[in-house]
Each structure stands twice: as structure tokens, then as C-alpha cells.
Amino acid sequence: MTEHFFRGVRAVLFDLDGTLIDSAPDLGAAADGMRLTRGMSSLPLDRYRPLAGSGARGMLYAAFGMTPEHADYAALKDEFFIAYSQCLLERTRPFDQVHEMLGLLQARGMPWGVVTNKSERFTGPITKAMPLFAAASVIISGDTTPHSKPHPAPLLEAARRMSVSPIECIYVGDDERDIRAGQAAGMRTVAARYGYLGAGANVAAWGASAEVSSPLELLNLLEVP
């Protein structure tokens, strides 16, 4: 991969789940607990992990094969949210290299922030409890603006709060909607191949500006000041 691929970058924005933190074990545990209370067998984490980026929708599909069109979906989603709120940080950890990568960004004087579709009721407690996020310049949740990704509004709001132009930002995410949102916002985009990606994802077809297989690879894409 070409070094210093991006020029003129003044800020880096990241998706949260599947990009900076591995929350799949807690998300999966919440859904799996719902199966157990119904007398169903436990499923391995590998069944939940690929769909973790889709939150409740993904977890309920993995656990019960249920889609939002099902009559019981709304009730089970509320139950899932309660279950997840009780185990938010039991198993959730930053991905390997994330601490080092963010530290090196800061050493370069490069501000960074988070734009996630996770609602503030979950984003707030997680980012406040994990020291990793103390240095974040901005944290935008799925309900911070009237729209969530793939709409560009959350990314544009992050750029506004950081006082940078969207073209001066890159957005890093592990889902196609992250790349679509970044493109719609006029940002350059990076697909995080080490993340959840989604079941059967064709990452090359997303049209990201670049791809990385580990967090530290991102640094090779930035122009050294």
C-alpha cells in the first residue's frame, strides 16, 4: 500500500464498534442470554460476530433469525437493549494496536473523533468508562443528529465541531454504510478489514479510498508533518 496516500488531512474520524472497539462479545452475550431464558441452546460467538456492526438488528437476526418486519421485533429489541445495557463493558475491549495507533496520531498533532450509529445511551457510558476516549475531539452518536449513517449528517456534524472541512477528514469504518456515509460527506474513506465487515461482505466493492488490515496500517496512509 502506498505510503502517505492522503495529503492535507487535518482530522481522522472513526466508527466505534468493529473499528476501535471489539464489542461483539457483549452484544452477543446479551442476545444469547435471551435465547437461554427461552430454553434455547447457546450459540458460539462466531455466529454473532459478523453481524455485530448492525447492533440490535444483527443480534436478533443471529439469535432468532428475526427481522424488523416480524410482529415481535419491537418487543425483543427493547428486551435486547435492556440486556445489553447490563453488560456493556464486561468483555468489550479496544482492538489490538488501537491504543498505539491513537497515541501516534496524537503525537503527530492529529485530532481524532468518533462517529457511530450506536445511540448515546450506550455510546456515552462506554466512551466515558474507557480511558482510550479521553483524548477524542468529538464523539457523535447515532441519535446526535436527526439522521444516522449512511446519511452524511453525523460526519458533517463531527467536522463542524472540529472546525475542519470534510475534505480535510478521513473516515475509517468496517461497514459499507461507513464508506457510503464518508463518501456522501465528501470525506476520503478507509475500510477497516480487521473489523466485523458484515456477513458475506465484498469490501473491495465498497469503493473506499483505501483499505487497512490492522489499525497501525492507517498511519502509513497519512502524510508525515
Rank of each mutant, 00 (worst) to 15 (best):
T2C: 11
E3P: 14
E3G: 15
E3K: 13
F5V: 13
F6R: 10
G8L: 08
G8D: 12
R10G: 01
R10D: 06
L13W: 01
L16C: 12
D17W: 00
G18Y: 02
G18D: 10
L20W: 02
D22P: 11
D22E: 09
D22L: 02
A24F: 02
A24L: 07
A24P: 06
L27D: 06
G28D: 02
A30V: 04
A30P: 08
A31R: 02
D32G: 12
G33R: 01
R35K: 02
T37P: 04
G39V: 09
M40D: 13
M40P: 10
S42G: 11
L43N: 10
L43M: 13
P44T: 00
L45W: 08
L45M: 13
D46Q: 14
Y48W: 07
Y48P: 08
P50K: 05
L51D: 09
A52E: 07
G53V: 01
S54T: 03
S54V: 00
G55A: 06
G55K: 04
A56V: 10
R57P: 05
M59R: 03
L60T: 09
L60E: 06
Y61C: 03
Y61P: 03
M66F: 04
M66R: 07
E69H: 09
H70P: 12
H70C: 12
A71V: 10
Y73E: 08
Y73D: 08
Y73P: 11
D78W: 00
F81Y: 10
I82K: 09
I82R: 11
C87P: 04
L89E: 10
L89C: 12
R91L: 12
F95C: 06
F95Y: 15
E100G: 02
M101D: 10
L105P: 14
L105N: 11
L105Q: 13
A107T: 12
W112E: 01
G113A: 04
G113N: 07
N117A: 03
N117C: 06
E120W: 01
R121I: 15
R121H: 06
F122W: 02
T123N: 05
I126E: 02
T127H: 01
K128N: 13
K128L: 07
P131S: 08
P131Q: 04
L132E: 08
A135Q: 14
A136P: 05
I140G: 07
I140A: 03
S141V: 01
T144R: 05
T144E: 05
T145H: 03
T145C: 13
S148Q: 11
S148D: 09
K149S: 03
K149P: 07
K149L: 05
H151T: 05
P152F: 03
L155R: 04
R160H: 02
R160S: 04
S163P: 08
S165E: 15
C169D: 10
I170G: 13
V172G: 11
D174Q: 09
R177G: 14
D178P: 12
D178W: 00
I179Y: 05
R180Y: 00
Q183D: 14
A184W: 05
L197I: 13
L197W: 01
G198F: 00
G200L: 09
N202F: 00
A204W: 00
A205W: 00
G207Q: 04
G207A: 05
S209K: 02
P215H: 09
L216V: 15
N220C: 09
L221W: 01
L221K: 07
E223N: 10
V224S: 14
P225S: 07
